[in-house]
């Protein structure tokens, strides 16, 4: 549910991040990798916001900047109107209580030497919440809420005794035990079997309901984003390409890249009325230097001069649906072809 009356909990303004590769001593400038290029968006209180993109699109970088694992090169991040850049001491501690992260790989994100109890209670210990007894109570509660019940079965186990899905649930319990306001979930299911993923999706969506949480859900799968998210932003090579209500972006994608993503998703079962757009020109291609649209080299509809000289701005084409493409404006519809469903062939 998108609601304009809701106030934004997180606001990102012109955020950039550049990774410098090592320069050689011979004065070779090296290649700077621009992970994020001046992106701006807002996330409203209580929503699940999906950031969808391929590997290397900068989606993980955005998440890491928000939880302050890294510092931006440029731009500002505001959480509840507090500027995060240069946050230190008390302010940083308060921020750490409010924002948590769920990592991609549950096999890597739990300390192998710590039991489940110690892992989940760590944030409580760090923030000096409660004493030994009350902490265990909070841990039990968090574990029940992620479906690890009865908690006593798991409290004294170690990560290597848990399955991937159980580990990820422990990681979610650790993030939730502080009762945070905002959680960044960085591809929480990409390392898990498809059948386990649904459990994780449901836990996240329950959490949102119960704890009045706001979630930034980072994923490479539009289908997962559609299931979980209220709004979706599609990111490609550090640029936001399209942003809008989830159902709208998937039903009515305007950017050729979003359309290519939808085309590429394997389809099975009831395909319904999914169209095939055929906007993709080439599967692999190098990044385009300069000012043009980053998707230009792979875009079938792109115009030779227009698209490679200037990056189109993210513009609202209908109610809260924003697209960064010259061809997405009303009146310049893209021709579509073919059928995506195997039953029809």
């Amino acid at each position: 549910m998108i609601n304009d009356k809701k106030k934004p909990i997180l606001e990102i303004k012109n955020l950039s991040k550049v990774y410098r590769t090592k320069r050689s001593i011979f004065g070779d400038s090296g290649n700077d990798v621009i992970a994020l290029d001046r992106i701006s968006f807002k996330i409203f209180e209580g929503e699940i916001f999906g950031l969808v993109g391929e590997s290397g699109s900068g989606k993980t970088t955005a998440g890491r900047l928000i939880v302050k694992l890294e510092e931006p090169a440029e731009g500002k991040i505001y959480l509840e109107n507090v500027d995060l850049t240069g946050l230190k001491g008390k302010g940083l501690r308060a921020f750490r209580r409010k924002v948590q992260m769920i990592f991609q790989d549950p096999y890597q994100s739990l300390n192998p030497q710590l039991s489940v109890l110690n892992t989940v209670s760590e944030p409580l210990t760090v923030h000096k919440i409660g004493n030994g007894k009350t902490r265990q109570g909070l841990v039990r509660q968090a574990m029940k809420s992620v479906g690890l019940s009865p908690p006593d079965d798991y409290l004294h186990r170690y990560p290597h005794q848990l399955s991937g899905g159980q580990r990820q649930r422990v990681a979610i319990a650790r993030a939730m035990v502080l009762n945070p306001r905002f959680v960044v979930a960085d591809e929480p299911t990409s390392m898990l079997d498809a059948s386990i993923s649904a459990q994780i999706f449901n836990i996240l969506s329950d959490m949102r309901e119960k704890l009045d949480l706001t979630i930034l859900f980072i994923t490479h799968s539009l289908a997962a984003a559609r299931y979980l998210c209220d709004r979706i932003a599609v990111i490609y090579r550090g640029h936001l390409m399209e942003m809008g209500p989830a159902e709208e972006v998937i039903r009515n994608p305007k950017h050729p890249y979003t359309q290519a993503l939808i085309d590429a998703l394997p389809k099975f079962g009831d395909c319904g009325d999914i169209k095939h757009y055929g906007t993709l020109l080439r599967a692999d291609s190098e990044a385009l230097g300069g000012a043009g649209c980053p998707f230009y080299p792979r875009c079938r509809v792109a115009h030779r001069t227009k698209c490679c000289t200037g990056m189109p701005r993210l513009e609202e084409i209908s109610d809260s649906h924003l697209v960064a493409c010259y061809y997405a404006l009303p009146g310049s519809e893209i021709v579509t072809e073919g059928d995506a469903c195997f039953y029809a062939t």
């Binding site: 939880v67 694992l69 940083l92 501690r93 750490r96 209580r97 924002v99 948590q100 992260m101 990592f103 991609q104 790989d105 890597q108 994100s109 739990l110 300390n111 192998p112 030497q113 710590l114 760590e122 944030p123 760090v126 923030h127 990681a171 650790r174 502080l178």
Partner: peptide
Amino acid sequence: QRPFIEAARVAGASHLRIIFRHIMPN
């Protein structure tokens, strides 16, 4: 570089805590 150290940082753990609680046992 391992995510569990980053997870501890996100949880707000101090450097000393990360060294003694997370790195040392490993």
